[in-house]
Design a protein around this nucleic acid. Sequence first.
DNA 1: GCCAACGTTGGC
DNA 2: GCCAACGTTGGC
Length: 152
Amino acid sequence: MNYWLMKSEPDEAAITDLARAGTLPWTGVRNYQARNLMRDAMRLGDGVLFYHSSCAEPGVAGLAEVCSAAYPDATQFDPASPYFDPKSKPDAPRWVHVDVRWRETTRLLSLKEMREAPELASMQVLQRGSRLSITPVTAAEWQAVLKRLHAA
DNA sequence: GCCAACGTTGGC
DNA sequence: GCCAACGTTGGC
């Protein structure tokens, strides 16, 4: 069992959208490191911290889980999509993604609170210059986040 | 394979 | 809108 933090812009997909849909394909990843994590390291049932980014209140907004293996991202072949990649060919898809399933909509654990929490200081998403949209989370960090989320 | 130029991310 | 940090591109 592994744990991850996955960033989503709430304008595109907020935790409320995931709660409504049940599951969502994690489309639009166009970074090789993040793709490789989905393709090579994620397993069914892995825990996901659903993080809202590029918004007024960035932070962890809920919990989800990986519910599919990696498969080709259809948006890469769609010229009308902002994620269209003309260099990617259907017989050799460049971009893949997993599906995630909603588990829980939590209170917002803000980026500010995360930065102020000593037990979360090791989280990759908090490191200087970290931009990766998908980052691994240790079991200890996962437990620490859950403890905070479920505290008063 | 180097690396300068350019593009993107994402908090502020 | 700014800008630091990092990724990608493409000429050589």
